[in-house]
Amino acid sequence: MSINLNDLLRKYKSHPYEDHEILAPHTGVVKFKVEEGQAVKGPSGQWLHRPGTLLYILEREKNPKRITSRFDGIVTDLRVDLDGKFVEAGQPLMLIRHRLNKQEITNRILKEVLHIFPAPERARYFFTPEISAKFEKGKTKSLSVKTGDEIVIMSLMKRDTTLNYEGPSGVLYEVYFKNGDILEQGAPLFGVCLPERLPFVEKVIQRIKTEWDD
């Protein structure tokens, strides 16, 4: 096994953060509702039905839209100068420094351990209906794939292409997109775990569970 688990864990321990850039989803006048350094919360509740901390209000066409945080974290790089100003779509407004939790660290390490099937083009992606149906039944961790299996539909310029899996056979261990997401070329679609690596993967998870404090 070429991956050094200790190195990986050390790396994350020294910098257990991930910065989420908060961009204006559309044009409008922005009014901030948080301050630099403020701790914010992501959505909560069993169904994530309680929205996170109110970050700012973006008013466009007399519709003041409340934009809430999707992550737990600390507000940094707040663009105070934009408060009360008209912003364009995609304008960076702040960063939310999110401290990675066990689950997220695990996912990141898994990304390096699993065989990743990347998006071949910048396009919209969907699972094939058969796979989707299996997911709905919650059979993710037991889904074996092999070269030639139809897994994903790529939708490009309103045309659908079914993608066949290429790579080592194994278990579809992790999924990195939601049905209908647009992914950049090369972004991971899903990760496959080789059967012989399964014990190692379990070990990774076990170690993070015991060594990591949330």
Binding site: H26, T27, A89, G90, Q91
Partner: peptide, 8 residues
């Protein structure tokens, strides 16, 4: 001006 979509 940058906007989110030509269709909105």
């Amino acid at each position: 001006y940058r906007i989110s979509s030509y269709k909105d």
